[in-house]
Design a protein around this nucleic acid. Sequence first.
DNA 1: CTAGGTTGCCTAAACGTTTTAGGCAAACCC
DNA 2: GGGTTTGCCTAAAACGTTTAGGCAACCTAG
Lengths: 189, 189
Amino acid sequence: MARAGLTAERLTQAGAELADEIGFDRVTVSELARRFGVKVASLYSHVRNSQDLRTRIALAALEEMADRAAEALAGRAGKDALAAFADVYRDYAREHPGRYAAAQLRLDPQAAAASAGVRHAQMTRAVLRGYDLPESEQVHAVRLLGSVFHGYVSLELGGGFSHSAPDTQETWARTIDALDSLLRNWPRP
Amino acid sequence: MARAGLTAERLTQAGAELADEIGFDRVTVSELARRFGVKVASLYSHVRNSQDLRTRIALAALEEMADRAAEALAGRAGKDALAAFADVYRDYAREHPGRYAAAQLRLDPQAAAASAGVRHAQMTRAVLRGYDLPESEQVHAVRLLGSVFHGYVSLELGGGFSHSAPDTQETWARTIDALDSLLRNWPRP
DNA sequence: CTAGGTTGCCTAAACGTTTTAGGCAAACCC
DNA sequence: GGGTTTGCCTAAAACGTTTAGGCAACCTAG
């Protein structure tokens, strides 16, 4: 019986693609097995269970996003960096909706601490270097930026903006303008 | 055989409570039947299928949030209204995490248009009445507010802020300060 | 108050997903 | 080439979803 050459990495990769195709919540061990032309039980040698598979996909997505963000931030500062960083979120979510949804999976604290999520936080802080915020305000600004990016992208992806007329592209540009303005004129505590 | 008195409304209500208890994605027709001390098949006379049940819970949650928001906005304006409106989101999500997650369910366009989601959009616009934004900028501001509130709440709920030190309460207050400041000094297009 | 129709919950059964246990053969390692 | 490891298999149990069909409880009209 020919071997299919399954590995945890390959399953994770295929799972990520599957998520983009049919949605993260419909990624199933069975479906993945079907794609590999293999019996379901075979996957359980490589992946502990369904939850494990999902977590792996989530971690991979976080890595990918962090890599993109790092690349985008290189050699940029101020509004330029802000816009590039923001675009990473949005573009990633549009190109890979399933992976983006995966990245939102709630991880247990230790997994989260070891994940690329912390790289994200560091990079958000790096964006703020281009603005003149007191140290004590930086946490709040980091959280605000995270909220806006995540919130915007997830509403746009979920169709929350789809009805009314104006292009979301325009709103996105205006959102970045607004954030830039806000960071330059951050209200005193 | 005594009747349990099931109705779609009662199932929806119980489903919402179940969601808050165990998480929206773990709400299942079987579990609901168990709670009512009834066989699974019995529920299918009241609810088309699992998806239908979820949708009903989502719509109910949207109604509840819209009601709360309407109540919060009555007699308030400016930053006062902004803060009250924002708190509705946050408080609802903290009190009813399962329902809040349900409210994020992607609805098909016609269901969305008929839902209380549109009331939300109208109320967000009402908040802006306290600020002096040109008509053409209002859509963008509405979307920005929606993004921040949803993004913040969903990150906080997902534990995204839990690690680092400062109280999220403080960040929340600073976020509202920042939004108020931003709306008062909205950058010219 | 009873006969007829309607409704509500039931049993039964098919199907899909998850997960564990144990087996056989391919691959690898000297 | 022989022994070990590894990878995929079959089998099977447990659970959620969903449909079909039945019987008894409830409601309504005479």
